[in-house]
Design a protein around this nucleic acid. Sequence first.
DNA 1: TCATGGATTTGATCTATATCAAAGCGCACC
DNA 2: GGTGCGCTTTGATATAGATCAAATCCATGA
Lengths: 248, 248
Amino acid sequence: MMNPPLFDAACSACPIRHRAVCARCDAEEMAQLETIKSYRTFAAGDAILWRGEPLAFVASVVSGVASLSKTLEDGRTQMVGLLLPSDFIGRPGRDTIDFDVTATTDVVLCCFARKPFEALIEDTPHVAQRLMELALDELDAARDWMLLLGRKTAREKIATFLDMLARRSHLAATGDAAPTASALLDVPMTRDQIANYLGLTLETVSRQFSVLKRDGIIDQVDRRQVTVRDLSRLQQATGDDADGGVWS
Amino acid sequence: MMNPPLFDAACSACPIRHRAVCARCDAEEMAQLETIKSYRTFAAGDAILWRGEPLAFVASVVSGVASLSKTLEDGRTQMVGLLLPSDFIGRPGRDTIDFDVTATTDVVLCCFARKPFEALIEDTPHVAQRLMELALDELDAARDWMLLLGRKTAREKIATFLDMLARRSHLAATGDAAPTASALLDVPMTRDQIANYLGLTLETVSRQFSVLKRDGIIDQVDRRQVTVRDLSRLQQATGDDADGGVWS
DNA sequence: TCATGGATTTGATCTATATCAAAGCGCACC
DNA sequence: GGTGCGCTTTGATATAGATCAAATCCATGA
């Protein structure tokens, strides 16, 4: 694996800078973050954090995919969040979380010891403000997912999932949130993990991939890669109101 | 309708104080909030805010129930939040919201003009911190709801809904989050609204109320009131893992 | 007191998705 | 370069909950 990037002005993993450039971190703040930082790697399937466990660190995803999930008494589980590179793990001001965090693929995290990180926040209002923005982004994503889980059909769920991946990967690649052409897409999860994310079974996920393929909307290159042949039909298939979804 | 309470040290509607006493608001901050405050009432069914509309105010629910909801292209809708007295409406640092806010019952809001409210936040870190806590509480609630929408059966959804109402009403009445005895419960929504909240149809909601009644877990006093006859069986019926749900 | 209309309950039937089952496929490891 | 084991696909069947339909309830106002 590539050596993880050092934390510096350009570090895409800095939890304060990620998803938008924070122009206000000064050299001293940077240096302070540098001293409490460490990289940690997790293999696919590893637990990163358990529900209820005291949080030792906050972190930013450098590479790979991690997921947040909750479980019912009898073992049924539901993913409640997906963490892609540059996403943040942690809850300013909270000791514990009430979901599990698991490595979906191999993952590298840029971790910051929690106590000193929170001390830093106290002194730097613009960092606190950035964290508030991140929390609100997560809340928006959670509410979109509630609509998906409560009201979308299996086909719409898969289309929404692929559309989200397309937007996020395009965003990462070009900084532009609205891809316009067909594209090769990395699907970094098994059918089972996708099912847990979408509130479906793995068989239904597989069938709907096949349907979208039969309809000429996607092509399956391999288990983990699809090409979007017709993005506008994919987006129509999401069921979303054209103006104003979170992803638009 | 009763005259709304004035804003003062004891005002349960103060968005900074609600759900927990903020011991750090000084007299000057209070006075400042007082100048930008106004009460507004909405009749059941009224729109409070539309998706995409610029936010003119932030607010705290004084009485009644409001809901956040999202809609698909073909009109299917899903509630993504329920606002009970003392809950907060608003997104520090955001101009618009991407869901509708509707009065579920008659509602009284304590509104604060957004710009001056945000100016106040800038100067008072402890208020910003309180808002962060509120956002994280909402995020926790949203994630519990994702588990409910994605994986719970109709019976479990209704049980969870009633358990939530029981906890929240007990909390409001006694300040203690864990009711232990059976209790009369106010259900402030129609079957249709409950269905939209739980990702069900109104018929299924009605049937499951009947089933819980037949099983001796609840009694239906009237359309809007139930008594919980056996709280522990109600909680078992939620499907939640005994240790560690959000509501525990 | 009765008529009216929305909300609710209950019944009958339908269907999308779950569940159960059995091949395929392909990568990793010998 | 074969073998085994996950992962995936596809098929057959079952079922929870949706949909369609009809009473019933109950608040409201004439």
